[in-house]
């Protein structure tokens, strides 16, 4: 009975909605605890205690912050473009959620296992800049505007090297499907043979999400808070959630492309007992820890240094590596012969 109902159109829609919920609810909880993790880890690195009042070890801190943020007043500045001003945080947040549709947490365990999964991820992450750009323009404030201009140039620059790094991985995989990308790493994770590209990708991911040391779009010492100075209450909260969800997404991409996704480090007994999704989560947590570690360690880049790193170092390096990978695969006959 239930089976037949699920085959109808309405049943399918309900099923997809449930699948989406099964991804989004854990994601939002993860975002809440990522903020706590960031504060705790940074506190430990700076010999402080971090939040420890709300709940045991401050476990309820994230929810206290969320309630505070929701109950504040939304202020729309005079002269702001009302619709775009409110649309921008919504866009940032929903794009950060949308990308999770194709991330496989286990073999074939994705809401949509599409053929061009990696291109979909690239497309969604390249759209992220619009939330920032629109927010900066619609706020009608010079600090916000300067922040959004910086963000636009920064994201477009680093997308180029991210794209080229992905191309070198795809050369070794022979498919654009995220599932196939992970399965191609059964023998060896790509972070070993492509170690330089792993580093380039990780640093570009830092720049793409606007995290320290590349947090120039919000550089609080020069631009107050950058593109979201004028935002308050829930609209600020959406930017905040979007930024952290993007961090988790980028960590997920690093895990899938270079750290073997849900695969255990070795295909032998004690490692294979742990289910795949747990490995995936562990790898994401590791990447997130490095994100926070970086923030606690490095001072902010100057803008010309940022551009120099992106265009004069990463771009030629990843281009060269791409050609070298293609040449190596062709010379050794290891080029994947093609289904897609």
């Amino acid at each position: 009975m239930a089976y037949f109902f699920l085959r109808t159109l309405i049943g399918q829609i309900i099923l997809i909605a449930l699948e989406a919920l099964a991804v989004l609810v854990p994601l939002l909880i993860a975002v809440a605890y990522l903020t706590l993790m960031e504060r705790k880890v940074m506190a430990a690195m700076q010999l402080r205690r971090g939040p420890n009042v709300n709940g045991i070890f401050g476990l309820l801190q994230a929810f206290a912050d969320a309630i505070k943020m929701i109950t504040k007043e939304t202020i729309i500045p005079a002269g702001a473009n009302r619709f775009l001003f409110l649309f921008a945080p919504f866009l940032t947040f929903s794009l950060a959620m949308l990308a999770w549709a194709v991330i496989p947490t286990g073999s074939g365990l994705a809401v949509a296992n599409i053929n061009v999964g990696i291109l979909y991820l690239l497309a969604i992450s390249s759209l992220g800049v619009y939330g920032t750009l629109i927010a900066g323009w619609a706020s009608n404030s010079k600090y916000a505007f300067l922040g959004s201009l910086r963000a636009a140039a920064q994201m477009v620059s680093y997308e180029v090297s991210i794209g080229l790094v992905i191309v070198s991985v795809l050369l070794a995989v022979g498919s654009l499907n995220l599932n196939d990308i992970v399965l191609a790493q059964q023998h060896i994770w790509f972070c070993v043979p492509m170690f330089p590209m792993f580093i380039v990708f990780f640093i570009s991911a830092l720049a793409e999400t606007g995290r320290a040391p590349f947090d120039l779009p919000e550089g609080e010492s020069e631009l107050v808070a950058g593109f979201f100075v004028e935002y308050s209450s829930l609209s600020f909260g959406l930017f905040f959630l979007g930024e952290y969800a993007n961090m988790i997404l980028m960590s997920g991409m690093v895990s899938i492309l270079f750290l073997g996704g849900w695969l255990p480090p070795l295909g032998i007994a004690p490692f294979t007992w742990v289910p795949g999704p747990l490995w995936f989560i562990a790898k994401i947590l590791f990447c997130l820890f490095v994100f926070i570690w970086t923030r606690a360690t490095f001072p902010r880049f100057r803008y010309d240094q940022l551009m120099r790193l992106g265009w004069k170092i990463f771009l030629p390096m990843s281009l060269l590596w791409m050609i070298a990978t293609a040449g190596f695969l062709l010379a050794t006959g290891m080029l994947p012969q093609g289904a897609s």
């Binding site: 599409i114 053929n115 061009v116 291109l119 979909y120 690239l122 497309a123 390249s126 759209l127 800049v129 619009y130 750009l133 201009l149 636009a152 140039a153 994201m155 477009v156 997308e159 794209g163 654009l176």
Partner: peptide, 21 residues
């Protein structure tokens, strides 16, 4: 699907950003 994704990546993600800029 390939063309669709490339359209979004190239035109929306790069060209239109510079337009807007």
């Amino acid at each position: 699907e390939f063309l669709a994704m490339i359209l979004v990546i190239v035109y929306v993600g790069a060209v239109a950003v510079l337009f807007l800029f």
